[in-house]
Nucleic acid binder design. Structure first.
Length: 647
RNA sequence: GCCGUUGUAGCUCAGGGGUAGAGCACUUCCUUGGUAAGGAAGAGGUCAGGGGUUCAAAUCCCCUCAACGGCUCCA
């Protein structure tokens, strides 16, 4: 009997029933067969050597397909498991999936603790097993037999996984002497794995639950060629050079002090300058967008947070209340600005004509983050949100939402953040009691967000159960240099606080109505945003943001006075920088300015002084020749205008 | 908070049971220069903090603190 196989180009070929994707590849070319890792069969990824019994569409997957890589890495995880079982008999296995770059396996080694010193031995074992070119053999198994197998083996984690599987849907995979519970698919044999590197080791809770036992998670990555591994390692090293913690130190932007406290960044002069530039940039954009600036204190009475509900929900995990000397008063360091802003709303009766009311504040907040969570500037305990709260009528939610999206997109575009994703976080439909607010309000808010995102053609991913307890949200996610995802901009609908603070406005019907509140922050926090900005730009900020925009470098001390004169003149044109008065040669001054990533160097010596000019050198580009001060100023302002196009 | 690793000069790091090293930065002097490191000298450390083992601890052990890689969490 023969079957029809449709390939991605639309061509249809006939093969005998039971043909595998590998056979199909072989019929096309031997080279392709060598490279085929797995195949999409009727929309599902299958083993390349799994027999196909019916007419099917088949897309062969190789290393060039993300799904092909996923298969490769998943098979590598099994190879790691096989190596571990051979080196550490009795090891129990959790799960071992492929991840974005590589794979991991969670294992229970009993009393044994593993460290990265053990990696070489494990890697060598993996390579040895890979060279055996053992086939990955798929074997469907009944639930009872599967339970029997893993009971015999004594692997309670696999038994727990089987418990959640349906009889008839269970398969085992065996390569060499190792058999694992696995839905597959896998590559044809271990021989394709030529380069192996275990990258790190970590604790990970079984089934991602803090109440469960912590297993040892071993991360690794493999490649079909050693050269690809070398390239990968090189790229990781390059990425580490852009780490904001490293650059923050090198460029004197910020620091931490044990004495000040964990997660409490100190902004150094250059970092503070960068931060101020960003703030004034957004303040200007917000004024144009109809926001009204407000300022509120860093603390608020505990009663404020009892009203808002945050005391009940987060009180015990917050910095604890501050007490006054005599009375029983208690104040909280503010963990957010919204309760204060609600009180501003309430300072007078509001009419529907006043809405939307957009209150904006760069508000510094303090949250007691778990110590293990702190991370450079991206996760800190004291940070400043570019916060605003929009109080609007229910019918205005969608339009306001779109306006905020436009503002966020404008900010991202101006700063060159083109690699981001928009995440829509909705409530978990299975667990509605976790959330505050009626079904009706939630449905309206969720559809407003979805429609607004669609209207602005955002590339969105939707996460169920990720909404805040008070409302759905839209977050703008970016990656840091090492590929970790962080939330920057956020837009959140809130039906909770208006109720708790009993916010009202008088409608056109002369009745009282409840406004809707939208929390939003385009940067998210100054700290995290700047961290990502540093990594995106590798510390080479656009001219308008550079802490020092120019360095004036006198050829010798004789030209110091002239250098000062130029400096003061350019300061009048709002150009920031410094004169390098050190007793060093010009080459040295240039080198140091280059290392500090100063965008423009103005070299002044005898010639420049006589001609009332400056010799302009652009960082990374070199000598631009001599020009008058005002010519330089014009060129400078032009570049800034281009940076801020559309502003 | 949990698992693992790390902590030596301002920075990057070497050393390792017999009481401390390099390069850069810093200070002083010489040098007054033309587009990515001029030369010399000097100063600088309770080897994260505390406890223990030892004749002797920066080195070995324990605790604490902090950083790093993850996990969990994230108003």
């Amino acid at each position: 009997m023969s079957i029809k196989i449709t390939l991605p180009d639309g061509s249809v070929r006939e093969y005998p029933a039971g043909v595998s994707s590998y056979d199909i590849a072989l019929s096309i070319s031997e080279g392709l067969a060598r490279n085929v890792l797995s195949a999409v069969v009727n929309g599902e990824v299958w083993d390349a050597n799994r027999p196909i019994e019916q007419d099917s569409s088949v897309k062969l997957l190789t290393w060039n397909d993300p799904e092909g890589q996923a298969t490769f890495w998943h098979s590598s995880a099994h190879l790691l498991a096989e190596a571990l079982e051979s080196l550490y008999p009795g090891v129990k296995f959790g799960t071992g999936p492929s991840i974005e770059k590589g794979f991991y396996y969670d294992v229970d080694l009993g009393e044994k603790t593993l460290s990265s010193d053990d990696f070489v031995a494990i890697e060598n074992k993996m390579k040895e097993l890979a060279r055996q070119k053992n086939e990955y053999v798929r074997q469907p198994i009944g639930k009872a037999d599967a339970i029997k197998y893993f009971t015999n083996k004594g692997d309670e984690y696999k038994l727990e996984l089987i418990d959640g599987l349906e009889d008839g849907q269970i398969t085992l995979y065996t390569q060499g002497g190792f058999t694992d519970l696995c839905r597959g698919p896998h590559i044809p044999n271990t021989g394709a794995v030529k380069a192996v590197k275990l990258t790190n080791i970590a604790g990970a809770y079984w089934r991602n639950n803090q109440d469960n036992k912590q297993l040892t998670r071993i991360y690794g990555i493999t490649f079909p060629k050693q050269k690809e591994l070398d390239e990968y390692i090189f790229q990781v090293e390059e990425a580490k050079k852009r780490d904001h913690r490293k650059l923050g130190k090198e460029l004197d932007l910020f620091a931490f002090s044990e004495k000040v406290g964990q997660g409490l960044p100190l902004w150094l002069p250059k970092g503070a300058m960068l931060r101020e530039r960003l703030e004034s940039f957004l303040k200007k954009a917000q004024l144009r967008a109809g926001y009204l600036p407000v300022v509120t204190p860093h603390i608020g009475s505990k009663a404020l947070y009892v009203t808002s509900g945050h005391w009940e929900k987060y009180g015990k995990d917050s910095f604890q209340p501050i007490k006054t000397p005599d009375a029983d008063e208690e104040f909280m360091l503010k963990p957010m600005n919204c309760p204060h802003h609600c009180e501003i709303y309430k300072t007078k009766p509001r009419s529907y004509r006043d809405l939307p009311l957009r209150l904006a504040e760069f508000g510094t907040v303090y949250r007691y983050e778990q110590s293990g969570e702190l991370h450079g500037l991206t996760r800190v305990r004291g940070f400043t949100q570019d916060d605003a709260h929009i109080f609007c009528r229910p019918d205005q939610v969608k339009a306001e939402f779109i306006k905020v999206i436009d503002l966020v997109l404008y900010v991202f575009k101006t700063l060159g953040f083109d690699d981001f994703s928009a995440q829509i976080s909705l409530r978990d439909p299975e667990n509605k009691t976790k959330y505050i607010g009626s079904d009706d309000l939630w449905e309206k808010a969720e559809s407003a967000i979805i429609e607004a995102a669609a209207e602005r053609s955002l590339n969105t991913v939707t996460e169920l159960g990720e909404a805040a307890f008070y409302g759905p949200k839209l977050d703008f996610m970016v990656r840091d240099a090492l590929g970790r995802k962080w939330q920057l901009g956020t837009i959140q609908v809130d039906y909770n606080l208006p109720n708790r603070f009993e916010l009202e406005y008088i409608g056109s019907d002369n009745q009282k109505h409840r406004p809707v509140m939208i929390h939003r922050a385009p940067f998210g926090s100054m700290e995290r945003f700047i961290a990502i900005l540093i990594e995106n730009t590798a510390g080479q900020f656009p001219l308008w943001l550079s802490p020092d925009q120019i360095a004036i470098l006198p050829i010798s001390e004789k030209y110091s006075d002239y250098a000062e004169e130029v400096f003061f003149a350019l300061q009048d044109d709002d150009i920031r920088g410094f004169v390098d008065h050190r007793d060093e040669k010009i080459g040295r001054k240039i080198r140091d300015a280059e290392i500090m990533k100063v965008p423009y160097m103005l070299i002044v010596g005898e010639k420049e002084q006589n001609d009332q000019q400056v010799s302009v050198r652009k960082k990374g580009e070199g000598d631009l020749g001599s020009m008058s001060w005002s010519e330089f100023s014009t060129l400078f302002q032009k570049e800034i205008k281009e940076n801020l196009a559309g502003f």
